[in-house]
């Protein structure tokens, strides 16, 4: 499984989500996490067709996009989504 995350240094919601994603990484060491900056990684933003609400997270399974998480979510909600895939 692979998780691609888009955030920005000035985005309050992203800052709130950072520690949550750190915990998720510890819970799921086997998942690959890739972080992109909305302002810096412009090409990636185009490639992954990122909208105008941040943070935006795309989850891949077997290299296929299975779901997107947009905005802030509670840790429980994210664990539930990952476990359901």
């Amino acid at each position: 499984m692979k998780i691609v995350k888009f955030s920005a240094m000035w985005c309050s919601g992203c800052l709130v989500m950072n520690p949550i994603w750190e915990k998720i990484k510890k819970i799921y060491p086997q998942i690959e996490f890739i972080n992109y900056d909305y302002d810096v990684d412009e090409d990636m933003k185009e490639k992954y067709k990122i909208g105008n609400i941040l943070p935006e997270v795309i989850i891949y399974k077997d290299d296929k996009e299975v779901t997107r998480i947009i905005g802030e979510k509670k840790q429980k909600e994210i664990i539930k989504i990952i476990d359901s895939l």
Partner: peptide, 17 residues
């Protein structure tokens, strides 16, 4: 609105940055 940051236009952001 969603629980996230709505991104303003790139020009405006870049100008302020």
């Amino acid at each position: 609105s969603s629980d996230g940051c709505e991104v303003t236009t790139k020009e405006k952001r870049q100008k302020i940055f």
